[in-house]
Design a binder for these strands. Sequence first.
DNA 1: TATTGTTATACTCTATAACTATA
DNA 2: TATAGTTATAGAGTATAACAATA
Lengths: 180, 180
Amino acid sequence: MGLMAAVPAPPSPSMAAPSAPPSDPLGDDLGWALGVLFRAYAKSSHAALSNVPGGPRGYQVLATAVRETPRTQLALAHQLGVDRTVMTYLLDDLEKAGLVTRQPDPADRRARRIVATDRGRERLRELDARLGEVEAHLLAGLPDAEQSTFRALLQRLAGHVNTADPMTDTCQAVAEIDAC
Amino acid sequence: MGLMAAVPAPPSPSMAAPSAPPSDPLGDDLGWALGVLFRAYAKSSHAALSNVPGGPRGYQVLATAVRETPRTQLALAHQLGVDRTVMTYLLDDLEKAGLVTRQPDPADRRARRIVATDRGRERLRELDARLGEVEAHLLAGLPDAEQSTFRALLQRLAGHVNTADPMTDTCQAVAEIDAC
DNA sequence: TATTGTTATACTCTATAACTATA
DNA sequence: TATAGTTATAGAGTATAACAATA
């Protein structure tokens, strides 16, 4: 049983991982492999997104602003799973960089709609191209056919995991833990 | 291009993730799926390891102490990819819990060899059982045959990624970034 | 009174540097 | 002088709470 390293909470991304799977006589090592792959992707995408204020999360905000109909800050925060106070900082920086603007919501004068600027749209195209390279490079160790297989299986798994109630599931899987 | 949420550095584990892949007209969404799966595993394993001081990293130290020949703190730190100062705190807690002991290195009086106690060995067995359940549950959305396929492909990918020089690779993948 | 967004404060975790003891 | 381990300090990043404007 491997377990990816440094799972819990890297405040500064301690993305270092064990260079070898902890001796696991029983065979496979899902946690370790998953952690290695995730960290590799996180590291590469972080580099690919050094262009965006806020890094990966700034990218997500920008992408949502470009691709979906304008949303309020709070809606954006919920959708992306970040705190609303963090969203404020993120938007401050993105707006300063001229990639998005805060516009008054005609229906609610408390709220602000986040819309991408032309510059933001253009920037997003660059970033998506870079991310495409990162993804391709991450899978480069596999022949094409197996890349497709892996992507498909991963997608299906993520769909299942995402659909299921996370907390219920966690407690089912680890029934003997009292904290649940 | 999805990109898992909150990639960079959750000081407190902001493990929240977008509940849906950012609209991606081009099809697949590797980053999002990888992030969802990783976070699900991180969350479940964190719960499964609430029993160990230091959480997932405490588990790794314990597992290494049990399964490999005794190592010095510094060797452990390098092997697991953590700072040596963090290793001190980790070992303080593990030793306080009676799971490992610091023993003098006969060859170097500066160094300490980390060895697991009987209690530590027993605890590790429990934890491995729990992690096994977590892994099984994570893959439960796939039929058995495809679980094996996924595990095998993931393992191969992790092997490749881990072998390649990470920094060189990152810069190759994102050639236009000056920071490299 | 409740809610959107902002600001200020405290907390968590990590990395940096300074210190002790050995080599 | 360099290294193993410890301790103290500062830093990055998040969450909590208090605040202003509006509903």
